[in-house]
Amino acid sequence: MLKSFRFLFVLFPVLAVAVLVVSLPRSVDGPGTSAAREPPALPDKLSPAEQDLSEQIAALGEGFDGEAGLAFRDNQTGRIIHYQGDALYPQQSVSKLWVAMAALAQASAGELDLQDSVTIRRADLTVFYQPIRSIVRQQGSYTTDYADLLSRALTRSDNTANDVLLRRVGGPEAVQAWLNGAGLGAIRFGTDERTKQSAIAGLEWSQAFSYGGKFFDARDRVPDARRRAAFEGYLSAPMDGASPVLMAVALGRLAEGNLLDTVSTELLLSTLEETRSGPKRLKGGLPDGWTIAHKTGTGQYFGGEQSGYNDVGILTAPDGRTYTVVAMIRRTSAPNGQRMELMQELVRAVGRYHEVAKAPAAGA
């Protein structure tokens, strides 16, 4: 048995997850339910395809220079294979998924009209990547609708678009309440980008940080000891922490239509297929004819290390079978190319698994 695999149970509020491989039952409840599920049983043994995939995933994780959690879910069987996937990892912009889902759930309930008009002004701008800022700078404001903000937040990872949509759905508490109600309460949403990124840097948010390099200038003035304490504190207990295993469960339920209604599910998946960020992360390993609906997340640097470098997604094979893949890196100093290669190789391993798993059994 590989040294990194421990057979134990990690208890989440609504399900028990067995480390290495577990078969999680598909939800038979409606979208957004928090009904409890029976703890799954450990399989008696792995199939040859699962055994091969588990060894490949272990080799990828152990060979990487950093703290990586990798998870895979076969959405046909519900079986999960993972490496170090039961701990909390920083989500960073992966958490934009939950804002979008909460918004879509409210839209389905008639509590939010995604076509409602909204105006973005200087006071709404946040920090780091926010393409909307260029429009606001040129025009003084930008009037659009919430559907546009949702698309920008997911496909372009626009922090301002996400934070304005977040305020409309009721703030961090409302998003966490949606996660809790969906049976995903062990996922921590965290807070808005302004508050989160400032805290990681040992700062308190000032609206002046939203323009130019003022955030970076202020961060450079933070004493190293305070910056280190904030950085390490975030990594040890990320306010937006999620385990790769539960992330795989959540995306698997999304793919199966058990988180949102049919219209919202189709809209979200089609939007995630248009994601522009991270073209060389998971997407870079796609076999010919496959598609991916995914969301990336990238954290801050300090002392030569990055806090959070992620990509999570749903792979669809040419025959329509779907698989969930999750790659979350808590911290690393490895070059970007090595991080991307880790993610690409994970996808390639899934492609090889698919070719074996889809083949009919001998004598069938």
Rank of each mutant, 00 (worst) to 15 (best):
H82P: 07
Y83I: 08
Q84H: 14
Q84F: 06
G85H: 10
G85Y: 06
L88W: 06
P90T: 09
S93I: 02
V94N: 01
V94C: 06
K96I: 02
K96C: 01
L97I: 05
V99M: 01
V99C: 01
L104Q: 00
A105V: 02
Q106N: 10
A107M: 02
A107R: 00
G110V: 04
G110E: 03
L114A: 08
L114M: 11
S117E: 15
S117H: 08
V118A: 12
A123P: 09
L125Y: 08
T126L: 08
V127F: 06
V127Q: 02
Q130W: 07
Q130G: 11
S134V: 11
Q138K: 14
Q138S: 15
Q139Y: 11
Q139K: 15
Q139R: 15
S141Q: 13
S141P: 05
S141L: 12
S141G: 09
T143N: 12
T144S: 10
Y146V: 02
L149I: 09
S151P: 05
S151G: 08
S151L: 11
A153I: 03
L154T: 02
L154R: 00
T155A: 10
T155L: 06
R156T: 14
A161H: 01
N162P: 09
D163V: 08
D163I: 08
V164P: 03
V164W: 05
L165N: 03
L165F: 11
R168M: 10
V169C: 09
G171Y: 04
G171T: 11
A174T: 15
A174I: 12
Q176R: 10
A177M: 12
G183T: 08
I187T: 09
I187F: 12
R188P: 04
